[in-house]
């Protein structure tokens, strides 16, 4: 078990380094500092402005190895884009954004709160609702309840997420006037009013795939022999479903759930940007529209980091939840 954990962790670290390298290739190889600088200062800017901008943002270093500063000064060797890229990502010192010149760290701190206030309720409600409805559908399998749930799943999965947002805003916000159409206010008393609509729409968007997956898992478990044993010793429907089926099904469901945790920070990109919630998703969209490569790089890195951490967490919790794995 310990050996497994160490190995898993080591592989995680290796993957993080892989992601860093991938980012370097993408942002310094496929596109390069010259392009970035030209986009930032504009095509017609004076050459001095262009050079100055590159200097300010640290884009003026050589690519791999710095040989300009003399062979004997060891530190200078590493004064390159590659080393700087790795150093920054590893030390979480993300520097300044390419436009606006703000420290990226501050914007991340400011964005984390609003993001979480949207995605946390979305995550918890989605999980409870998803499991509940899937359990119901699985229990009443092949009845009209099950069929209705499946139909709703297929239909909602076939609608573009963008449409849900636009349609939801139109119906609930504009026509019924239940909630404000967009905006954000961190004040505790009114925050719910701003969040209700995006959370509602987010729930509908996530409904289909989750419920279908959970239902399949439940049905698979319900066909197992131990369920028959439980019934044969006199356990009732509720006990069979909750104490036996749910407990076993939670293991595969866990995988799906923990994998979703990184999306607490990035997943609601569309919702945030559309409803004007100043979270990390909005930051990403703004960076995209403003050609802010430093910001994008940081977001992709953090997203991947969260995802890798989530995967490790999944594997560990998987091992802990299943005695067959835990005790081997």
């Amino acid at each position: 078990m310990v050996v497994y954990l160490v190995r898993r962790l080591a592989y995680g670290v290796l993957t993080v380094f892989g992601v860093m390298l991938l980012l370097f290739v993408l942002f310094f190889g496929v596109t390069n500092p010259d392009d970035i600088a030209r986009k930032a200062v504009g095509e017609r800017a004076m050459p001095e402005v262009y050079v100055q901008w590159k200097k300010n943002h640290g884009y003026d270093r050589p690519m791999f190895l710095n040989t300009e500063h003399g062979v004997f000064d060891g530190r200078r060797y590493s004064d390159t884009l590659l080393f700087e890229h790795f150093r920054r990502l590893l030390s979480f010192d993300f520097g300044r954004s390419d436009n606006g010149d703000e420290p990226i760290a501050r914007r991340l701190r400011e964005g984390a709160g609003p993001s979480l206030s949207l995605t946390l309720p979305l995550f918890v409600l989605g999980l409870v609702l998803g499991i509940g409805i899937a359990l119901l559908a699985a229990f009443f399998r092949e009845t009209y309840i099950d069929r209705a749930v499946l139909l709703v799943c297929v239909v909602t999965m076939s609608v573009a997420g963008l449409l849900f947002i636009i349609g939801g805003q139109f119906l609930v916000g504009l026509l019924l006037k239940w909630f404000p159409v967009s905006g954000f206010d961190p004040n505790a008393t009114v925050i719910a009013r701003f969040l209700a609509l995006p959370v509602l729409i987010g729930l509908v968007m996530g409904f289909g795939p989750d419920v279908r997956l959970y239902r399949t898992v439940f049905l698979e478990e319900m066909n197992r022999d131990y369920v028959r044993t439980a019934r044969a010793k006199g356990a009732g429907d509720a006990r069979v479903m909750l104490a036996h089926v749910l407990r076993n099904a939670l293991i595969p469901i866990l995988t799906n759930v923990v994998m979703a945790i990184p999306f607490l920070f990035t997943g609601a990109l569309l919702l945030e940007s559309f409803f004007g919630i100043p979270g990390l998703g909005s930051l990403t969209v703004d960076a995209l529209n403003g050609n802010d490569f430093a910001m994008l790089r940081t977001m992709v890195y953090l997203g991947a980091l969260a995802f890798i951490a989530g995967q490790i967490l999944t594997d560990v919790s998987y091992a802990l939840a299943d005695p067959r794995v835990r005790l081997s």
Partner: peptide, 19 residues
């Protein structure tokens, strides 16, 4: 593993930005 560990929407955005 590498490609799967970058959330796909972010990877899409990054790729299209640089390409």
């Amino acid at each position: 593993t590498l490609l799967a560990s970058v959330p796909s929407l972010l990877l899409l955005i990054a790729l299209i930005t640089v390409l």
